[in-house]
């Protein structure tokens, strides 16, 4: 009978999984796009702008994700900016991730020898072209390990959207627990397993991508 209720609850876990994946996908998309812009800005933009970016990064890396969620979801409406919980979660995940990713990309940019950009200039490229055709492709390749790391962190962090009421995996788990308290341990172990498999698979795929795009002569290393 416990098994029956468990099976009955599987569809709701599946719904939760979809939301978790959605949060991950949009969160990482926002984080990556913004992260690249920020890193490029910090390396190549004017001083005041670079400094502003630095402050943005420090602030976002210094605030817990849960607090960021609360600020966006509960705080902003006070000045008339309203987001639904899902959007607020994507924003929180993405903004915070962008601050971490910017650091990864900047590290990558810094490790590209200066000669590369000089060589690009001497071919007649302007700054924008040099960044786009010479720096970017190398920077992105060098960033794969760091990005992979960030991806799995963000995937796990989506669980915090629970805190502002997004109905993702964790929240679905709680619903099942309320319906049938006996199932609680099994359900959360099952959710743990789902996350584990997601992280595991993501790591495998990303490791493959990393190998495939590795530049000969460049060693890269992942950090958390």
């Amino acid at each position: 009978m416990a098994l029956e209720t468990l099976i009955e609850s599987l569809p709701s876990l599946f719904d939760g999984l979809l939301i978790t994946l959605l949060l991950t996908a949009f969160g990482i998309l926002l984080g990556t796009t913004l992260g690249i812009v920020l890193a490029t800005g910090r390396s190549y933009a004017s001083r005041p702008l670079a400094y502003l970016i630095l402050i943005y990064e420090k602030v976002l890396r210094g605030i817990p994700l849960l607090v960021l969620f609360f600020l966006i979801y509960f705080g902003l409406p006070q000045i008339g900016i309203n987001f639904n919980a899902l959007t607020a979660a994507v924003l929180g995940l993405g903004l915070r991730s962008s601050a971490y990713q910017a650091q990864i990309y900047r590290g990558a940019i810094n490790s590209i020898p200066e000669g590369q950009i000089h060589a690009a200039y001497s071919l007649g490229m302007n700054k924008l072209k040099a960044i786009r055709h010479v720096i970017m492709p190398q920077m992105l390749r060098l960033s794969i390990p760091g990005w992979s790391n960030e991806f799995t962190i963000l995937l796990k962090d989506t669980s915090l959207a629970f805190g502002i009421g997004v109905i993702e995996l964790m929240r679905q788990g709680r619903y099942i627990q309320v319906r049938d308290p006996d199932l609680v341990l099994v359900v959360f172990l099952l959710i743990a397993l789902i996350f584990f498999l997601l992280v595991f698979t993501a790591n495998k795929i990303l490791r493959y991508v990393e190998k495939k795009y590795q530049m000969a002569g460049y060693q890269t290393e992942a950090h958390r």
């Binding site: 796990k156 962090d157 989506t158 669980s159 915090l160 629970f162 964790m170 788990g173 709680r174 627990q177 609680v184 341990l185 959360f188 172990l189 959710i191 743990a192 996350f195 584990f196 992280v199 595991f200």
Partner: peptide, 13 residues
């Protein structure tokens, strides 16, 4: 491989 929150839920709930 698993979120901290899941670990807390397993322990607490």
């Amino acid at each position: 491989g698993t979120p901290l929150l899941v670990q807390l839920f397993i322990i607490y709930f």
